[in-house]
Design a protein around this nucleic acid. Structure first.
Lengths: 238, 238
DNA sequence: CCTGGAACTTGAACGTGTTCAAAAACTCGC
DNA sequence: GCGAGTTTTTGAACACGTTCAAGTTCCAGG
């Protein structure tokens, strides 16, 4: 067993290098030419490996995107944690985290168009909505848990429980917008973030009013239903 | 000019037949085997034309979907108009139209998965969100105008103006859900329709309250912003 | 060192959507 | 019914994602 592990780690080094090389090459080319215009052959050629080798490390061209998610997410977290220490209100915390997300993704705007084509495709194994256990999604939601937990707002339990998920979905929506935003410096997106965060904040406040309890309950039940359904998509049967 | 038109119409007959033949063949095969598993070669072969000929009539495989939209939409309208004559309240009218939509699409559930992969893809010329001149979308929204106009509900002008669009988007959401719904007889979707229509109705009522005016205005401004942005995606620059 | 097996690498081959230049069919004015 | 022009039809060719059987490299155990 010890030997076995040693062997593995020993070999892993080379393998990991190749893997990283292919991924880096791919991401660079995606950034420069876009996803569609970057062929697997070109990636392999530029990375100095064979076509088949690229497929040894990445099951498909789409799987390169999964790796991209992971890497940008890590970066986003690194930016967000310090920012969260300085913000107290829910509004400020949410604003910071979402702005930083866009900041992180910025270099990839050109190729980001593909992200949602695949992310929104329910068939795709990369769809983060469908797969509850998707590590990127789990990690991503944890960040929004922090956003909610650390805040000083008073929010009813039922809503508070669902809020990280709702905010995560919200942030996906913002990214979707940003992908299509061709305004200079993404000003439009930043304006949208300001407006929607403000609106979300007001809605949360409104929904927290005891008056709103029945409507809130109804809406939350609906959210649950949608979540369940989204996750059922993966399993084959009924 | 007259000759020209005559010539055109004369030729159109044959051409239209071929076009229809290809489309029918394609839709049948999509229904039976699904979109991905139906190749252009197979469609051409089964229709008894050459591969190139299929591309003469349909610019791409995706464009066959556009034709599909059109044909099911026409059917949906034919079902809806009589139903709308019998329903007075907004809630009842909306419920009827959306249920009938699902009813219309039912035979295509198996292949519907592709619909949203392409419909949601902002790059695609078929994306109905991006192109506000898309004939299918125009026609589709007209139906929701009828839903609102014919109803007895009292709704503030600003909201009423935007409502057809909002309901159209809502109905797209329902379709998205239905596509992934694998429950027997799509019960889950019908339940969702009931719940969401109820919720939408309550929200409209709530939003119509003078108290809600500021929040409503803010939300509507946001909707406008989103619409504008979605439509800008098509134009190349800036 | 040698060997068996595992990890890694290769490139030819396949299936598919799409393009295109050339052929065929058709229309209309004469 | 002939010729010019237009529409329709053809199928070979291309590019790309993906697969796979076969080859190479690497390492622990003898």
């Amino acid at each position: 067993m010890t030997e076995r592990r040693k062997k593995r780690t020993a070999q892993r080094v080379k393998g990991d290098q190749t893997r990283a090389l292919i991924l880096d090459t791919a991401l660079t080319m995606f950034r420069e030419r876009g996803y569609d215009h970057t062929t697997m052959r070109a990636i392999a050629a530029k990375a100095g490996v064979s076509l088949g080798n690229a497929y040894y490390y990445f099951r498909s061209k789409e799987h390169l995107i999964q790796a991209f998610y992971q890497s940008t997410h890590d970066e986003h977290v690194a930016f967000s944690l310090p920012a969260l220490e300085k913000a107290e209100t829910l509004k400020a915390r949410l604003l910071a985290v979402i702005r930083l997300k866009i900041e992180t993704l910025k270099p990839y705007h050109h190729f980001a168009g593909v992200l949602f084509k695949t992310a929104a495709d329910p068939q795709s194994p990369l769809n983060p909505f469908a797969d509850d256990a998707n590590p990127v999604r789990v990690a991503s939601m944890q960040l929004f848990e922090k956003v909610v937990e650390g805040s000083t707002a008073r929010i009813p339990k039922d809503l508070k429980a669902e809020l990280p998920y709702l905010l995560w979905v919200f942030h996906m929506g913002i990214i979707l917008f940003w992908i299509h935003d061709r305004s200079p410096k993404h000003r439009r997106t930043y304006r949208l973030i300001d407006h929607t965060v403000e609106l979300v904040d007001r809605l949360i406040y409104l929904a927290s009013n005891p008056f709103m309890r029945p409507l809130r309950k109804q809406a939350l039940r609906l959210v649950d239903e949608l979540r369940d359904a989204a996750e059922d998509v993966l399993d084959g049967d009924e």
